[in-house]
Amino acid sequence: MIEFKNVGLVYPNGTEGLKNINVKINDGEFVVIVGLSGAGKSTFIRSINRLVTPTSGSLLVDNEDILKHKGKNLRKLRTKVGMIFQNYNLVKRTNVFKNVLAGRLGHTGTLRSIFNLYSKEDKALAYNNLTRVNIEEKVYNRADELSGGQQQRVSIARVLTQTPKYILADEPVASLDPPTSHQVMTYLKKINKEDNITTIVNLHFIDMAMEYADRIIGMRAGEVVFDGPASEVTEKTFEEIYGRSIREDDLRGGAQE
């Protein structure tokens, strides 16, 4: 369970990233955070694995306040909370298998990981996760030989290899075309259901949010302005969240039936 209690974040330049956030995310939920760029979606998600550090309030992950975490505790938190990025963030010159095994870093000692001494189980897990996202035939290809959608699938396999309890996805489909976007979201949803991994996704496409989310949290100017089940959400709700009428480019389109 993730719990934001009066969380605020002021960046060193004075910008307020988060304002008095109070949100509770239950285990197994598939939450989509929506909002315009600059609304604080990224800051919200990155607070949970402390890629950014909120400046006030408390943030509980499994009833532990993570805002004071440092060094070893912080790395332990990060092994538990996996992350997927907009630009996939793979090491381009390294092959797919090693990129996926990098998900084990938090579980592996420094020397073992430097000399590639991964256990049989770790390697089996990594390969198995590649098959789960149907990319196992590219196992020895270099990451930069893959298309965007394939790279994002590898990054999903990497995050699965981490065996996380939570997955954060920061605009995972913003650099992809509509069909590939739906494919990636379908994988995320499937993993959420099958492994019961709590998943929090940032999106700005409202049709995708409505299609995949269990629960939608709307953000504007660093504040949570909407929080409710996806079934209750209509276009009107989005107009309220965005503070303007819905436009063509707020929709991804190309939904798979």
Binding site: G82, N89, R93, A102
Partner: peptide, 24 residues
């Protein structure tokens, strides 16, 4: 970006450097 990903997966400084800086 890859360095950020390694950090986010719980790697320590040496692992981050070895896995995402060295290949680059």
């Amino acid at each position: 970006n890859p360095l950020e990903a390694m950090r986010a997966s719980g790697g320590n400084v040496f692992q981050v450097i070895w896995y995402s800086l060295v290949p680059q």
